[in-house]
Design a protein around this nucleic acid. Structure first.
Length: 285
DNA sequence: AACCTGACGGTCTTCTCGCC
DNA sequence: GGCGAGAAGACCGTCAGGTT
């Protein structure tokens, strides 16, 4: 029987501050993400949606959905949790995420039916507090709270329809070698900047590694070459735009970082067997 | 007008081998 | 573990022509 489990890929709590100049961040990655606005007001551009929400707000981002969070107040604090579901289907699907995220600007944290959901999200943050007396099992507690949170959201949507310090990258990624950490840093860089022109030279310099060694190490760790990984990110984003928007192929080409519509079209067909427009047509039918 | 396809060629990426 | 050189092959922008 196939073992289904869920792992923490990355958890972090960050600030956006007008004083410090850092006011936006985001990207695309093949992992589901929970985004929690803790303080201030933030704007989330997610696929074709644009939300402005005040804390506490909770957004659920299924895998391969482009997202960009930006600050809309003097100070904004938020947390994000990326999960590796490993076959589990407990994360809300796109339709459920649209429904849930669409409610966030209305500040549903005050609703009696959702109070427990936001309390659970806060509990996840509190598990990371240095004052947490259960620091030694904080990671296990966080995973339990995440499961609880997802279960509560799922239940809510169904009903409606009817001190630990933040783990270091090495704690999230089992392989603790320096090269591995650098490669994973680059992966995150690619996920945040896939829509910009990126070359392997640039990525290797981001990792402070020689190009040939970088490529070899990347392939060893990820199972794909850097370029293949970048293409997958871009094509996944394109699929998302094709299936959820009416954007033209040219606009999608630009949006996901390809310089040429012809090259995009060629790669798309290589991966999916049909051209982008035909793929969209078949989805509609 | 928007999109697709094939061909072409310069550029870039990847691999291999060897070295420290 | 990390780096460098060189060769092979893949990438990717561009053009031309065709289709919807």
């Amino acid at each position: 029987m196939r073992r289904i489990s869920m792992h923490l890929r990355k958890i972090d709590f960050l600030d956006f501050s007008k004083e410090q100049g850092k006011e936006s961040g985001g990207g695309i990655h093949p992992y589901p993400e929970i985004l929690f606005i803790l303080e201030g007001t933030a704007r989330l551009q997610w696929i074709d949606r644009d939300y402005t929400a005040t804390s506490p707000s909770l957004f659920l981002l299924p895998p391969n959905t482009p997202h960009m969070l930006s600050n809309k107040s003097d100070y904004c604090r938020f947390g994000f949790i990326e999960l590796d579901m490993e076959g589990s289907s407990s994360f809300p699907n796109l339709e459920q995420a649209y429904l849930w995220n669409g409610m966030q600007p209305a500040n549903p944290a005050q609703w009696p039916a959702t109070v427990l959901i936001y309390e659970t999200a806060l509990q996840i943050r509190d598990n990371l507090s240095p004052n947490n007396p259960y620091r030694s099992i904080a990671k296990d507690l966080i995973m339990l709270d995440i499961r609880k949170l997802l279960l509560l959201v799922s239940c809510f949507l169904q009903t409606r329809k009817a001190g630990l310090v933040t783990p270091s990258p090495a704690a999230v990624f089992p392989d603790k070698t320096r090269t591995s950490e650098r490669i994973h840093t680059v992966i995150r860089y690619m996920e945040s900047n896939y829509q910009h022109p990126l070359t392997v030279n640039v990525l290797a310099s981001e990792a402070y590694l020689d190009v040939s060694y970088f490529i070899r190490s990347f392939h060893k760790i990820v199972g794909k070459t850097p370029l293949q990984y970048l293409h997958d990110l871009r094509l996944n984003a394109a699929i998302c735009f094709l299936s959820t928007t009416t954007m033209s192929i040219q606009d999608i080409t630009n949006e996901v970082g390809f310089q040429s519509i012809h090259y995009f079209s060629r790669l798309f067909k290589q991966k999916y067997g049909v051209s982008p427009s035909l793929w969209r047509t078949r989805q509609i039918c």
